[in-house]
């Protein structure tokens, strides 16, 4: 039982990182921008929030929880929006190729984060912002004490719930509002959106930058809660970033699917660590690790399925990956 709860906890922590990543990437991709810079943006957001919180924590003997949350979130959002802005400027204004720009952003983002990270590490292999971690991992008061029920649903830091709220909010905005309708049109058929007076560039810029800031929160959560508030030079942010890209496909570009999809990915990813004991599996450990590829394999199967069935609603925005030039002839 304890193993199961631990597994679920771990899956939810893990899922939260990629839920932020995917929610942000869905916002971005819905505008027709395939941003492969997700890992880079998560690096930027994660490191900036860590650095801000770490310096604040060490600069005052009596750090305040509210201030530390504010500093961490603002630093993380600013840094990741900056990444989104670079991508937007290059792909929207200068019409550079989206795939290449995204990959360059990933190189740049992880470079910046690790470069300054080394300064913070100051020769060590990891530094911990201990107070920040307690703030970010503080469980829900009272409710988390409700035995197993509390352990499963309320033992998490506030960002776990923030991720769900953002995903739901994104779902509502995309499916129920004028802005969401316009955004979908921009990603599906920018020429049409343009013809009815929607500013394609504005929507692409805003979606990409807002998307990047949400993606960046994934990095914030990764460092400050999932990673126990430590910054280290060997982090798996990049792998999680790509998993977030996979989750977007798995969720078929629908934010409501992300909420459960992220946790399912988490369950599969941590299968190797908990399942053998729980299920009395006698497989060799090395084989069990194979289960880590399940999220990717399922994603591939989903991709094949929707394309074979030609499910127009599930193939992703039709203009994904293309830049828009009104007078193209």
């Amino acid at each position: 039982m304890m193993t199961l709860i631990a597994w679920i906890n771990r899956a939810i922590w893990f899922g939260t990182v990629i839920m932020f990543g995917s929610t942000g990437e869905i916002i971005t991709e819905r505008s027709g921008n395939l941003n492969l810079g997700v890992p880079g943006i998560m690096f930027l957001g994660g490191f900036a929030s860590f650095a801000g919180a770490y310096y604040y924590e060490n600069s005052t003997p009596d750090p305040s929880s509210a201030v530390i949350i504010l500093i961490a979130l603002i630093c993380g959002i600013l840094a990741s929006t900056f990444g989104g802005l670079i991508y937007s400027f290059l792909t929207i204004t200068l019409r550079a190729n989206q795939n290449v720009t995204g990959l360059a952003l990933t190189i740049f983002g992880s470079g910046i984060a690790n470069f300054f990270g080394v300064q913070v590490l100051n020769g060590g292999t990891s530094v911990k912002a201990a107070f920040t971690h307690t703030v970010f991992s503080k469980p829900v008061p009272f409710l988390s004490k409700l035995g197993v029920f509390g352990d499963i649903f309320f033992s998490y830091g506030f960002m776990v719930y923030l991720a769900i709220i953002l995903a739901v909010l994104t779902h509502l905005v995309i499916s129920r509002t004028r802005i969401g309708l316009n955004l979908r049109a921009v990603g599906e058929n920018p020429a049409t959106a343009d013809s009815v007076g929607i500013s394609v560039s504005k929507y692409k810029y805003l979606a990409t930058c807002i998307g990047a800031s949400v993606t960046g929160l994934g990095g914030v959560y990764y460092v400050l809660d999932y990673g126990y508030g430590t910054w280290s030079s060997s982090s798996s942010i990049e792998g999680l970033g790509w998993l977030a890209v996979a989750l977007v496909i798995f969720a078929r570009w629908k934010p409501r699917n992300i909420i459960w999809g992220a946790y399912v990915f988490g369950i599969f990813f941590w299968f190797y660590n908990y399942a053998p004991a729980l299920l009395n599996l006698t497989w060799p450990n090395t084989i069990v690790i194979l289960t880590q590829m399940i999220p990717y394999v399922i994603t591939i199967l989903v991709l094949i399925y929707v394309s074979a069935k030609q499910k127009k609603d599930s193939l992703g925005p039709a203009a994904l990956g293309l830049s828009y030039y009104r007078e193209e002839r």
Binding site: R178, A185, E188, A193, S195, V196, I198, K312
Partner: peptide, 21 residues
Amino acid sequence: KLVDVLTATENIVLGLKDKGR
């Protein structure tokens, strides 16, 4: 100039700046 995956209504109101939800 229509968006394939949207309904007729959604296409018709697309881009309008009416007040309210």
